[in-house]
Computed example of a mutant assay.
Amino acid sequence: MKKLFTNLLLGIVLSATSSAQNVGIGTNTPTGPLSFASQLGNKIVLWGDGNAAHYGLGIQGSTLQLYADAFNSNISFGYGRSGAFTERARIYNSGIEGMYLNGRLHLRNGDPSNLGGGGGIWLYNPGNTAQIGFMGTQNSQNIGFYGGSAGWGFTYNTINSRVGIGNDNPNAPLAFAATLGKKITLYPGATGDAGFGVAGNRLQLYSDNPNADVAIGYDAAGTFNERFAVKPTGALAVVGNTGLANQVLGSAGPTAAAQWRSLNSLIPTPSAGATATLPAAGTSVFFNNAQLNFTLARSARVLIWIDLITAQGCVFYPCSSYWKLFMYLNGNAIWSREIPASHIDQTYYSDARSLGPIVLNLAAGSHSIAFSGFSIRGEPGVTLYPTAMILSD
Rank of each mutant, 00 (worst) to 15 (best):
G78W: 05
V198S: 06
W122P: 03
R90E: 01
G83M: 11
S161G: 07
I165Y: 05
G148S: 06
N102C: 14
N169T: 15
T158F: 04
F85N: 09
S94P: 02
F196V: 14
L180M: 11
E87W: 02
G78R: 07
G78C: 11
N102G: 12
F85E: 09
G110T: 04
L115Q: 09
I75P: 01
G133Y: 01
F85P: 04
G83S: 14
P173H: 09
G195K: 05
Y79E: 13
G166F: 01
R88D: 01
R104F: 14
G151Y: 01
G144F: 01
R81F: 13
G103H: 08
G98L: 04
L186W: 05
N72S: 11
G200E: 11
S149W: 10
P188N: 10
G153W: 00
N93M: 09
Y124E: 07
R81S: 15
H106K: 13
A130G: 13
L107T: 12
S73C: 13
L105C: 07
N171F: 05
N125Y: 10
G133K: 02
G197S: 07
N102K: 11
G95Y: 05
Q131F: 13
T86C: 14
N93F: 01
I132E: 07
S140Y: 10
N125R: 12
A178M: 11
F134E: 02
Y92W: 09
L174T: 13
G80A: 11
A177L: 06
G151T: 05
F196M: 12
T86K: 14
P173W: 10
P173D: 12
N74C: 04
S161N: 15
Y146I: 00
G147Q: 03
P188K: 06
N125F: 14
N157C: 04
L186N: 04
A190S: 15
P170V: 03
G83F: 11
P126C: 12
D111I: 08
G98I: 05
N167C: 10
S140F: 06
G189E: 07
T191Y: 15
G83E: 13
G189W: 08
L174Y: 09
T179Y: 07
F196L: 14
I165R: 02
T155A: 03
A130M: 13
A190N: 12
R162S: 06
N201H: 12
N201T: 14
T129D: 15
Q131I: 14
N201I: 06
I75L: 11
G83Q: 15
I159D: 14
L174P: 06
I121V: 12
T185P: 00
G164W: 00
P170A: 11
S82A: 12
S113P: 03
G189T: 11
R88N: 04
N109A: 13
T158G: 08
S76E: 08
A194M: 07
Y100A: 03
R162T: 06
L105T: 08
I75E: 00
Q131T: 12
I75C: 02
G110K: 03
D193W: 02
G117E: 01
G197L: 03
D168I: 09
N102E: 15
K183F: 06
I159T: 15
